[in-house]
């Protein structure tokens, strides 16, 4: 017969078969109703931690178009489900309240950030790329008497991080080379 005493966890712990109080004794009605975020996810995307080069595989849990949890993927031969503090915090990369999601613009000699439409920004950047390319264009280079064809621009430089995907690096190198830009570098140098 269920008594009021049965609702009291300590009583259940002392009299039941859970003397350490870590199992059934500690469970309540509220506990029963709690479901983990990972169980209710709409879908799980397979991903990889973007921090260090161990490349821990992640499972990304999505519910209602939002990321609810990121965990280590136990299937991975490398990390076997584990993540370090960085990988475990990687959900905050996505959900951080200080993340910037709008284009910001600072005009020459300006003292404040301003708003700018993404499309406008893209057009403005394209203008500047063409102008800088023209300004820094070299048909040839070298000391007098030893000049060689170089076919390039020294007006544009680029520095990428090591969280770029291979596909991104590839398009960057391809586009820059075609426009003649050579001062293309990456964190990999650092």
């Amino acid at each position: 017969m269920k008594t009021w005493l049965d609702a009291w966890p300590v009583f259940r712990q002392l009299t039941g078969n859970d003397p350490l109080g870590r199992g059934t004794a500690a469970r309540s009605k509220a506990t029963e109703q709690v479901v983990s975020r990972t169980a209710t996810a709409d879908h799980v995307a397979k991903s990889v931690c973007p921090f260090c080069a161990v490349g821990c595989a992640q499972k990304v849990y999505v519910e209602d178009g939002r990321i609810t949890q990121i965990e280590g993927d136990p299937d991975s031969p490398v990390n076997r489900g584990r993540l370090c503090p960085k990988g475990a915090a990687s959900k905050q990369l996505v959900t951080s309240p200080t993340r910037v999601t709008k284009v910001r613009y600072r005009r020459p000699y300006g003292t404040e950030w301003e708003d700018l439409e993404l499309d406008t920004a893209m057009e403005m950047i394209a203008d500047r790329v063409l102008e800088a390319r023209r300004k820094g264009w070299q048909e040839e280079d070298g000391p007098p008497g030893n000049r060689h064809r170089v076919n390039r621009t020294m007006g544009i430089a680029s520095l990428g991080g090591a969280t770029l995907d291979n596909e991104e690096n590839y398009l960057m190198k391809k586009l820059y080379s075609a426009m003649g830009a050579i001062q293309i570098e990456n964190q990999a140098r650092i």
Binding site: P50, A53, G55, V78, K102, R104, T163, N166
Partner: peptide, 22 residues
């Protein structure tokens, strides 16, 4: 005189692609 454009980027779970790890 530097004109600065800040363009927000997608995070690792908001795009597809490959990393090459160590």
């Amino acid at each position: 005189g530097t004109e600065v454009f800040f363009l927000p980027a997608a995070s690792h779970v908001e795009k597809e692609g490959t990393f090459t790890q160590t």
